[in-house]
């Protein structure tokens, strides 16, 4: 044990725990999806846990994040309530949106999950707006927009980067490049240049981090967040990672032929959760007993949360017309 290590052993274990928790939750959704009770689209983030966890570990509770259709991992990493998430996916009144949003609209104002929006790039300006609110109130909050590689093809992303840079806003644009938009590979959609090169065009710094390495992500995000908090303006972070399961739904879809099994297996061999477990055990920061205990506790939490969500009542149909206006 080396108490002076940064992050500390406890922090390292917390990072591992957060990733493992997302992994196990997503896998449980996948396992139960065939029951046909979660009747909304799900975009699982299995394989991308290090990006969500590393980035959110650099944030304070009052900082705000925004996400996309693939929001489960971000929501959980930022501290979003698991029961409210599952209840939402089950369409229940106790869901974070009261059953009005489904899995693509996860938000938790108490945890700083401002909004998730399933229109590609649509939530990016919302994060910039949150950053503008921080700046106007002279608060030192930071906003992080999570976006996919596909979002970089949308005009509103560039409008948001331009604006954030022009007004020196405390916002971090965190791009998870998983190389696909649905089934269309990046090279069919964008020219061959590093995604990070876009930052220079908008007059902001770029950082690249291995998106499967939670510590690399944490380090980059900490740097960007520190700059943002200090008033130095936005940063674009690009983290390469890989979605394991199908674009939408619980299964694997490599059989469709849009990517090769070899490519998938190569990424799977770089499993961000397992790799980090191995690293921690090498460092002596986590024993097998520790990780088993963690998995056991998380499993119990997940079981209880699914039990809660399944047993929770549906919203009253008569309330569907309520809350259109404040």
């Amino acid at each position: 044990m080396n108490p002076a290590r940064e992050p500390s052993d406890q922090e390292l274990r917390d990072l591992y725990r957060a990733m493992l928790r997302i992994r196990l939750i997503e896998e449980e959704i996948a396992a139960r999806y065939a029951e046909q009770e979660m009747r909304c689209p799900v975009h699982l983030s299995v394989g991308q846990e290090a990006a969500a966890v590393g980035a959110c570990a650099a944030l304070r509770p009052a900082d705000q994040i925004t996400s996309s259709h693939r929001c489960h991992g971000h929501y959980l990493a930022k501290g979003g309530d698991l029961r409210a998430m599952l209840a939402e996916i089950y369409g229940k009144a106790a869901g974070c949106c009261g059953g009005r949003g489904g899995s693509m609209h996860l938000f938790d104002p108490d945890a700083g999950v401002l909004a998730s929006v399933p229109i590609v790039a649509s939530s990016v300006p919302l994060a910039v707006g949150a950053a503008l609110a921080f700046q106007q109130r002279a608060e030192d909050g930071v906003a992080v927009a999570f976006l996919g590689d596909g979002s970089l093809e949308e005009g509103v992303t560039h409008e948001s980067l331009n604006f954030a840079s022009r007004f020196h806003l405390p916002v971090v644009f965190f791009v998870e490049n998983n190389f696909f938009s649905v089934y269309t590979p990046l090279d069919q959609r964008q020219p061959a240049r590093p995604l990070a090169a876009l930052a220079a065009a908008h007059g902001m710094p770029a950082l690249e981090a291995d998106g499967n390495d939670v510590l690399a992500v944490l380090k980059a995000t900490k740097e960007a967040v520190a700059d943002a908090r200090a008033g130095a303006g936005p940063t674009l972070i690009v983290a390469e990672t890989y979605r394991w399961r199908e674009h939408c739904g619980p299964n694997y879809d490599n059989d469709l032929g849009y990517r090769t099994e070899d490519e998938f297996l190569a990424w799977k061999a770089r499993d961000p959760v397992a790799a980090f477990a191995a690293r921690l055990s090498e460092l002596g920061a986590m024993t097998d007993t520790d990780s088993d205990a963690m998995a056991g506790a998380i499993g119990a939490e997940i079981d209880a949360a699914f039990g809660f969500a399944k047993a929770a009542p549906f919203p009253d149909g008569a309330t569907a017309a309520e809350r259109v206006y404040a």
């Binding site: 401002l114 300006p125 919302l126 994060a127 503008l132 609110a133 409008e159 604006f163």
Partner: peptide, 13 residues
């Protein structure tokens, strides 16, 4: 579109 979305984000805050 960008500044409308930014306005919405600020309004949510």
């Amino acid at each position: 579109n960008g500044f409308t979305g930014i306005a919405v984000g600020a309004a949510l805050m």
